[in-house]
Design a protein around this nucleic acid. Structure first.
Length: 276
DNA sequence: CCCGGCGCCTGAGGGC
DNA sequence: TGCCCTCAGGCGCCGG
């Protein structure tokens, strides 16, 4: 599932689209749009893409007076294609972009149809889109240990649930949450209110390490994630926890266990990960 | 106000 | 081989 590193990979690869104008938009899944599809389409036609960036797991297209915010949810991803390229199986929406004579087909492929495309006025999109309630960007240099320590003050709950809370730290999903718990040496059900200063420091370092490694490896492909050229990522080879229940721990050889936290399958090593 | 749980979806995989 | 059931899960929303 696309998390911060997978979305970041897309945003980097989409940069060549800056300067292109939206000439057409077609969809076989109009429910994904907000406002309704026809209003959305009318608003974006003729608009030039001024900039493309990321906040948490959201992709933000600046279109001048409007801002388009895309979210992949579980299985969504963009594909950069030529209009004549054969259509992939699960393409839900297609943007036809042009810059002079150059034409690009930007496709939104999404098996489960959970992905969303929302449009907001540029001058108030942060408040209207809900981006304002997100926690800090973990790969921003401002995400220091002291910032993290302050966020942890008064925080309660299970470690993995806290890591998945987008208003706490933005961009972590199920895969990287399991990896961060493993790298921290902490059981995912550890109570955060009982963590020591050293454990908090380890978690902070693990968040940055795991996400930066994911970006460096162009994302984790488990199941369906691919980049905008349709290529798999490389980070799945580094995984030490996610989906490894029933297998032996890469560090100590103990059989990995699983449990549900917030309705999400969670894999961990009962020996390497201390339960606090 | 916070937390748990559901609904949205489809394809993969297991059991028989 | 084919059918049916279960499972995967990010996030918005609902109800207790």
């Amino acid at each position: 599932m696309p998390e911060l590193p997978e979305v970041e990979t897309h945003v980097r690869d989409l940069q060549p689209l800056v300067g292109y104008t939206i000439r057409e938009l077609v969809s076989n899944t109009p429910k994904a749009f907000q406002p309704g599809f026809s209003q959305f389409r009318t608003a974006v036609l003729g608009k030039k893409i001024r900039a493309i960036h990321r906040r948490a797991k959201y992709i933000i297209f600046e279109l001048g007076t409007e801002v388009l915010i895309a979210h992949f949810r579980m299985t969504g991803h963009f594909l950069i294609r030529k209009p004549t390229d054969p259509l992939e199986k699960c393409v839900r929406h297609r943007f036809e972009l042009h810059k002079g004579k150059a034409v690009i087909d930007l496709r939104f492929d999404d098996i489960r149809k959970f992905g969303t495309l929302k449009l907001f006025p540029a001058d108030q999109y942060i408040e209207q889109s809900g981006l304002s309630v997100l926690g800090p960007e973990p790969l921003d240099r401002r995400f220091t240990l002291s910032v993290f320590q302050r966020l942890m003050v008064g925080k309660k709950g299970m470690l993995k649930a806290v890591l998945l809370d987008q208003s706490f730290v933005a961009g972590i999903g199920n895969i990287y949450a399991d990896e961060i718990c493993f790298t921290s040496g902490l059981h995912p059900a550890s109570r955060v209110e009982k963590l020591t200063a050293l454990q908090i420091k380890k978690i902070h370092a693990a968040i940055i390490h795991e996400l930066a490694q994911g970006v460096k490896n162009r994302g984790t492909t488990v199941g369906e994630f691919v980049d905008s050229q349709g290529h798999s990522g490389g980070n799945q080879h580094t995984l030490r926890a996610y989906k490894r229940h029933g297998l032996s721990c890469k560090v100590c050889g103990t059989t990995m266990q699983k449990m549900k936290i917030q309705q999400r399958t969670t894999s961990y090593c009962p020996k390497c990960q201390e339960r606090i």
